[in-house]
Simulated scan of single mutants.
Amino acid sequence: MSAETLTAESDFFAPRAAIDELLYEFLTEKAQTATVPRQSALALLLRDFITGGKRVRPLLCVAGWHAARGEGDPARIIRLAASIELAHACALIHDDIMDAADSRRGRPTVHRMLADHHPTPSMAERFGISGAILVGDLALVWSDELLHTTPMPDANRTAVLRCVDMARAELIAGQHLDLLTTSDLDVSIETTLTVVRYKTAKYTIERPLQVGAALAGAGQQVLDACTAYGVPLGEAFQLRDDVLGVFGDPAVTGKSRLDDLREGKCTSLIVHALRSAAPHQAGRLRALIGDPRLGEPEAAEVRTLLTNTGARAAVEQMIEERYRQALGALAAPFPQSAARTLETVAEAAVHRTA
Rank of each mutant, 00 (worst) to 15 (best):
E4M: 14
T7P: 01
D11N: 14
A18H: 07
E21G: 11
L22Y: 10
E29I: 07
E29Q: 13
V36G: 02
V36K: 06
V36Q: 04
R38E: 15
L44A: 10
D48C: 10
L60K: 03
H66Y: 15
D73F: 07
R76N: 07
I78Q: 01
E85L: 14
A91R: 01
D99W: 04
M113T: 09
H118T: 06
A124I: 08
E125I: 09
R126H: 15
R126P: 04
F127D: 00
I133T: 05
V135H: 07
D137S: 15
L138T: 02
P151V: 07
N156A: 09
R157M: 05
R162L: 14
A167F: 09
A167N: 02
H176F: 11
L185M: 08
I189Y: 12
R197L: 06
R197Y: 07
K199N: 00
K199P: 02
T204N: 03
T204G: 03
L209F: 10
Q210S: 09
A218Y: 06
G219S: 12
L223K: 03
L223H: 06
D224M: 13
V231T: 06
P232Q: 08
G234I: 10
D242L: 02
V243H: 14
G245S: 11
G248Y: 09
G254R: 00
D259T: 11
R262P: 00
K265A: 05
A273T: 00
S276V: 14
P279K: 02
P279S: 01
R284T: 10
A287T: 13
I289D: 00
L327T: 06
A332P: 02
P333Y: 09
P335I: 13
R340C: 08
R340N: 13
L342V: 07
E343L: 09
V345D: 05
E347R: 15
